[in-house]
Design a protein around this nucleic acid. Structure first.
Lengths: 291, 291
DNA sequence: TCATTTATCTGACCTTAGTCAGACAACATG
DNA sequence: CATGTTGTCTGACTAAGGTCAGATAAATGA
């Protein structure tokens, strides 16, 4: 009777099964079987290549073909041969199809906000959901190059500043720190990488270059819910690869003793501690790595 | 692109849908359609009345009847008329049925532990799952009378002591407090109530009586993941009802300023602050309520 | 007692999902 | 250009889930 881990997990599984089932049956309200609705949603979400949709939904080619035809008859989509390879086909939603897709999206959104509205502490609930989602699908986090001024990048940077403000004894004010201007973190001078889980950013790292052979690694941050999956290491590896690609010979970075997990990572991965190389008020540890 | 609440919720929904689907298809490995497996599981979990199973699984009476028959032919269960009402039927698993049920349970357990094993911080993950499960199914928390020496009660009490130790400035040692002996919290002198969510305890409260007209409310605790759903209020209401049932005229309780949410609840629900009525070292606020 | 309600069972029927073999056209390659 | 491969389509088929209209038997209430 003691609430051991497995019983707790299974209570969770029962609760979400009921919720997922309710969402599926709300889709049926639009007079279309679930399979067809899933195809509309896959195309609406940007998957146009028929083979790609088939792989994503795990459908047999015969079934897929029939579903496409029934949706075509309904006037929700059109198909045409792929311009590069006339054996393949691409599907595109018609205007009516777009409307149906929006209707499905609205149903999902409405369910989501109804549920969040009845949660007493919704931010805590969302963090819990993030953690669950990342643990279940943790191996599907992709690393992508992005503009540091993009919305996703700014979200990560704000979170990074907020965390520094909480963790540094001195607090943190980005205006007092030497905040790299965006151009220094865009090719050809540098770059900026995001870790993306299912479309949402969960981590970032910047490479600030000045055109010369030395560049600085900046703004390494991982969403708390995504920690423990080796994502920091993957981001650092990716930023090193990008630096080599940009013909950088030496990388530097600075950090603070209040971030012990970062210090440990740098020490574990071949970074060598060096003397202070800037007059930024916040860092107290400085590292270098030759590529 | 900013990860707003709805997108985060939907990432969560996608991740758990995949997990739930994988569990369902693992059930298919036992050579039986999902519908039949669900019936076996419902009966194994203690639902014997056919109408009750039908309501729980949302099945049509015709379909239910056929599923029962096919399982009966397989030798997994027997049905017989209900002793009180011969129109109703009750189903019971045979020995072979029990074995099949155990096999399904083992599959679920194995999935659960495999998943927990790959989580970097499994206790944190479990707390997140608790919060999600309780928010999704929060309206299904039942309040039941239990023995304070039962395993579920002891789990709650340990959690309660642990929380006091963390929150009171002085720490908390149950041996120094006037811990009521169990008999005082068992009928006819008192009672002990548990809040049960899907079989797992998430809260408790005790009523310590001495046979006279005055009794004390003790050990009010709610699992952190279950806070915010008005459960404390429900438990207090239930304990007041139980006290009336035991012919108690006056209730008392003591608490500590470090537990402001409890103080606020008592003040909101008709409790009147009174002078200290014991020499327990931990409490610093004392309340009374006439029934 | 008799009509009504309730719970299950039965047979007929339908939709959805999914499999499989073969057809066909477009590509790829020697 | 002949050959094999790839991606889609078609038709035939099956299993599973689900609906509906009685049939039956037991319980209930006037």
């Amino acid at each position: 009777m003691r609430p051991d881990s497995i019983a707790r997990f299974r209570r969770f599984a029962r609760a979400v099964t009921a919720e997922v089932g309710a969402l599926d049956s709300s889709f049926l309200g639009r007079g279309r079987p679930l399979g067809a609705a899933r195809v509309v949603n896959a195309i609406g979400a940007g998957r146009t290549d028929v083979a790609e949709i088939r792989a994503y939904l795990g459908l047999d080619s015969g079934l897929m073909s029939r579903l496409l035809r029934s949706l075509e008859e309904e006037g929700l989509l059109t198909t045409e041969p792929h311009p590069d390879d006339a054996r393949r086909r691409v599907a595109r939603l018609t205007e009516a199809g777009q409307r149906e897709y929006s209707a499905y999206e609205d149903l999902s959104d409405a369910r989501a906000s109804a549920l969040l509205a009845r949660a007493p502490r919704s931010e805590e609930l969302l963090r819990a959901m993030d953690l669950v989602a990342l643990t279940l699908g943790g191996d599907r986090i992709a690393i992508e190059e992005a503009d540091p001024r993009s919305e996703a990048a700014r979200f990560c940077l704000e979170a990074y500043y907020g965390e520094l403000a909480r963790r540094l004894e001195t607090g943190f004010d980005v205006k007092l720190s030497c905040d790299p201007e965006a151009e220094a973190m865009v090719r050809p001078r540098g770059t900026f990488l995001l870790a993306i889980a299912d479309g949402l950013p969960v981590g970032c790292v910047g490479l600030k270059g000045g055109g010369g052979p030395v560049a600085e690694v900046k703004r390494l941050w991982i969403d708390p819910a995504a920690r423990g999956f080796g994502l920091a290491r993957r981001l650092m590896q990716a930023v090193e690869d990008a630096a080599r690609d940009l013909s950088i010979a030496v990388l530097r970075l600075d950090t603070n003793i209040a971030l012990p997990e970062a210090l440990a990572l740098y020490r574990r991965t071949g970074w060598v501690e060096i003397a202070r190389f800037n007059d930024d008020p916040y860092p107290d540890h400085f590292f270098e790595k030759a590529l």
